[in-house]
Design a protein around this nucleic acid. Structure first.
Length: 575
RNA sequence: CGGGGCGUAGCGCAGCCUGGUAGCGCGCCUGCCUUGGGCGCAGGAGGUCGCGGGUUCAAGUCCCGCCGCCCCGACCA
């Protein structure tokens, strides 16, 4: 712990934020001299940012080590071979940066390291006696995001702590997973974040279960559904809800076809002359799941959730069918589609529709719909059809666990833990011998934390109109000492204060610049240093200096000699 | 990938419609002054006007192409 002189440091602060910064963390990180942009989704981390990132990494390391994690450092440059083995060379698609070496060989920049870690496990682990293992690294990841945005929140190069657990069986995985979950709670708490752990979608990772650690902020891109009455919280990619049963009344004994020229949308059918309420309609959507068509059916006024559809189909990649792909399959264009009597592809019907009767849906003939559809009788009776949870929950719908109503809010993902199971160990043939001599695939988990995102999330959470308000644990400097004037006695006292704060265990930023008081105050607020001690003539006349916390308003006049004790007292506080 | 916007000094912007010596604020440098919340005055440095091509006596300005960045959507461990 030593003092840094502001006058000698590179801290390029700005009065104006760049015009293209939208979110608070982006504007403030640039203005306060933490980062500069190099390209879309590519940033320079200047010394202040490096200090904060290092502190975050130190916390992550401590907590990983505390649960037996062993740190590795693996390549970011991967031969295509290992990605072909796991099958993800194709699955990752355009999101993976790919390159060729001089001999024409295929390589990728790592977006994640399941393949590399699993390859090590495969080559080196032989026996259940060697398990469990918990391996991790803090590494740069590359993802060719279609749309980098929001400063550090969605970037193409970032630092991730990724950990992997290797167990003989599911029970072992459950223990490893729980240990990680608890470590994550400690890490985010220590970093000063307010967060929620939510049930999550596993996506291209595969596996049997996962939780995301979310920071509630409008700058986030995920939507979380949470119940204020109980602990239920889930990403809307998996969230479920209770919705009231619909009173359908009796329908016709058979379906009736009727002409609906020009009525191609749910809204059009709601209007005269058809006047079919959206909740009485079946919305039929065609997707392509791993290159095979699949038909999804949700209520007219509900939204299909693509993540849920992906889960339900078990596909690695899904996409909406292109307009020209639909007629050959369905016999009609979008706007007149229905699943009644349709047998040429799997049909997934939203679970809330299982008991519905007297519904209206497309007739698979342009310009026609059918009414009197009994979902069970007409659709679920077909061998290619089944129920699945497909709809996106909405705010106000019933909590699935209690009688509360769900809240929906935007959130930023800062960590994600997965029970991978044997997906990678099977595809890459990583197995061990059990005590009874049988060979079993290693049961894996993987656990990620976005380091820069923690930094950005802390700012989204903790800032005001004047700048950043760092949690002490991850602040680039714990304290800053300002001299308000050029008088030598000010500098002398300031240096004593700096020494006392250092002694107390803080990193101190000594603002010794030949600047006016206003400039120093403004910069101190902008940078967000938690403790500010100002040494000025006024206070010094009484032998005192000014102690102020960035997070509060109160200014305490204290004798310089007491600053060290005050700092120690603050450090001793919880959090 | 679809839609929209923007690229002029380190940052924020004007100038472009209607072609004719490249400007303003902040920042930076020098001096004086001031000195407790981004002081004041004076002087000064700094720009291939994103790149390439075209039209023109003349292009920051008009035309064509490209590149980059941002936003919305699609997409997304």
């Amino acid at each position: 712990m030593n003092a840094a002189r502001f006058s000698q440091l590179f801290i390029p602060t700005l009065k104006d934020a760049p015009a293209d910064a939208q979110v608070a963390s982006h504007k403030l990180l640039v203005r306060a001299g933490f980062i500069r942009q190099l390209g879309a989704g590519i940033y320079d981390y200047l010394p202040l940012a490096k200090r904060t990132l290092s502190k975050i990494e130190a916390i992550v390391r401590e907590e990983m080590d505390a649960i037996g994690g062993q740190e590795f450092y693996l390549p970011a440059l991967h031969p295509a071979e290992i990605w072909r083995e796991s099958g993800r060379w194709e699955v990752m698609g355009d999101n993976m940066f790919r390159l060729k070496d001089r001999k024409g060989g295929d390589y990728a920049l790592g977006m994640t390291h399941e393949e590399v870690f699993t390859a090590i496990a495969r080559d080196e682990l032989r026996s259940y006696r060697q398990l469990p293992q918990v391996w991790y690294q803090i590494q740069t990841k590359f993802r060719d995001e279609p749309r980098p945005k929001s400063g550090l929140l969605r970037v193409r190069q970032f630092t991730m702590k990724d950990a992997y657990s290797f167990d003989v069986d599911q029970a072992g995985l459950d223990r490893s997973y729980d240990a990680q979950r608890r470590a994550y709670e400690k890490i985010f708490t220590r970093c000063g974040l307010d967060f929620v752990a939510v049930q999550a979608h596993s996506g291209a990772m595969g596996g049997s279960g996962s939780q995301e650690f979310m920071v509630r902020t409008d700058a986030g891109e995920d939507l979380v559904a949470a119940c204020p009455r109980c602990r239920y919280a889930a990403n809307t990619e998996t969230a479920t809800s209770r919705i009231p049963a619909e009173q359908d009344g009796a329908g016709p004994a058979t379906v009736e076809r009727f002409a609906t020229p020009g009525a191609l949308t749910i809204e059009a059918l709601e209007r005269a002359p058809h006047a079919v309420p959206a909740r009485r309609q079946l919305k039929t959507l065609v997707y392509v799941a791993d290159e095979r068509p699949v038909v999804a059916v949700v209520r007219g006024d509900q939204d299909l959730n693509e993540a849920k559809l992906q889960t339900a189909t078990g596909a690695a990649v899904i996409r909406p069918a292109r307009p020209e792909e639909i007629p050959p399959l369905m016999g009609a264009r979008a706007g007149s589609l229905g699943a009644v009597g349709f047998a040429r592809a799997p049909v997934l019907v939203d679970a809330s529709l299982g008991e519905r009767v007297n519904m209206v849906t497309g007739a698979n003939e342009d310009g026609f719909h059918v009414r009197g559809v009994d979902v069970k009788r007409e659709i679920l009776s077909q061998p290619n059809a089944r129920l699945a949870d497909l709809r996106t929950v909405r705010a106000g719908e019933g909590c699935p666990r209690c009688d509360g109503a769900l809240d929906l809010f935007k959130a930023l993902e800062v960590g994600h833990i997965f029970k991978l199971g044997t997906k990678y160990s099977v595809s890459m043939k990583a197995s061990v011998l059990k005590a009874d001599g049988t060979e079993v695939p290693i049961v894996m988990g993987c656990y990620g934390i976005g380091v820069e995102r923690i930094m950005a999330a802390a700012i989204e959470l903790w800032h005001d109109e004047n700048g950043i308000i760092w949690p002490l644990s991850i602040a680039p400097y714990g304290a800053t000492v300002l001299t308000l004037g050029k008088e030598p006695e000010l500098a002398k006292v300031a240096e004593e204060v700096v020494a006392a704060l250092s002694q107390a265990g803080l990193d101190v930023l000594y603002d010794d610049r030949d600047e006016r008081a206003g400039v120093k105050f403004k910069d101190a607020d902008l940078l967000g240093i938690p403790i500010r001690v100002a040494v000025g003539k006024k206070g010094l006349a009484e032998g005192k200096v000014e102690w102020k916390l960035r997070r509060g308003k109160q200014v305490d006049l204290v004798p310089a000699a007491q600053v060290g004790a005050k700092a120690k007292a603050l450090l001793a506080e919880p959090r």
